[in-house]
């Protein structure tokens, strides 16, 4: 079964069950997304993918809204651009997005000026949490997209070591009572790192290399191979710089892993360094 809808006046056909975002991608439109992940349930929290849908009072999040027959979707209206611009400004004015892939281009595209909220605006700035040798948490870079919570939770790992705690602007990602990770339920699968869109969660290797100025993506190769630690056959993407592994991800669309790994696959490569 397919559905036909119109996107910016152009008819697009998608499979039944597809989202508006799927249709936008099919139409070749670059849509900013942050909280969306193809391997996660949409939480539609970041609101940067908003589009206008005829008949809808408010804008609609493309990532989670199912496409409907004859839906009329607009992506380039003043309303949509305004909304995307403001959301990007809200984020860039409160969060350190310096290492978030893609965001710089969107800020330009939508003419965002985060500085217009004043120099004394509130931010989520705070010290980096370095509690072990595997990964760091820099919540000054956290946009509260819930992806780490989902990956730690029902969408993948089902460990539920972290949750959003508190409320409003003060809300944070937290373990129970904010105990340090090694004391929490965290099993160090690193699936939170794999889905983090802003670099708030980062391999300790990458963090250290960035700190001492040696992180250089231009010198990195990415090689897909298979993990050696059990018989499940998880696909690994080895990021290698100067013949050393610097981080490990898994392809999001791989049907063995759905992009998720365990501690051994994610971090268990020191023995060949």
């Amino acid at each position: 079964m397919t559905i036909e809808l119109r996107i910016d006046g152009v008819p697009i056909e998608v499979e039944d069950g597809a989202t508006v975002l799927d249709a936008l991608q099919l139409a070749g439109l670059d849509t900013p997304t942050l909280c969306y992940g193809p391997n996660l349930t949409p939480v539609n929290a970041c609101r940067v993918c908003m589009v206008e849908v005829e008949g809808s009072r408010t804008l609609v999040p493309a990532c989670s809204r199912p496409a409907e027959p004859d839906m009329v979707v607009s992506t380039n209206t003043d309303r949509v651009r305004h909304s995307r611009r403001l959301v990007l400004e809200f984020l860039a004015s409160s969060v350190d997005l310096s290492v978030a892939p893609g965001v710089g281009a969107w800020l330009d595209e939508y003419g965002a000026e985060p500085s217009r909220f004043g120099a004394d605006r509130a931010t989520v700035g705070q010290p980096v949490k370095v509690q072990d040798d595997l990964y760091i948490r820099d919540y000054a870079k956290c946009i509260l997209c819930y992806k780490c919570v989902e990956a730690c939770g029902v969408d993948a790992q089902n460990t539920f070591a972290i949750s959003v705690a508190g409320r409003g602007f003060e809300a944070t990602i937290s373990t129970e009572f904010d105990v340090a990770l090694p004391d929490s339920a965290c099993v160090y699968c690193g699936n939170c790192i794999g889905v983090c869109p802003t670099g708030a969660l980062m391999f300790k290797t990458e963090f250290d290399m960035r700190e001492n100025g040696t992180w250089d993506e231009d010198r990195q190769t990415v090689t897909e191979t298979i993990c050696s630690f059990c018989g499940v056959g998880c696909s690994l993407e080895l990021f290698v710089q100067d013949n050393r592994i610097v981080k490990v991800l898994s392809p999001l669309d791989h049907d063995v892993t759905d992009g998720h790994l365990c501690i051994k696959g994610r971090f268990g490569w020191e023995h060949i360094q």
């Binding site: 040798d133 090694p182 630690f229 971090f267 268990g268 020191e270 023995h271």
Partner: peptide
């Protein structure tokens, strides 16, 4: 156990907080 593997030849190489 979760963070180790067989006789530890490979998994012994990294430092698991658990």
């Amino acid at each position: 156990r979760l963070d180790s593997y067989n006789t530890g030849v490979q998994s012994g190489g990294y430092s698991s907080p658990r």
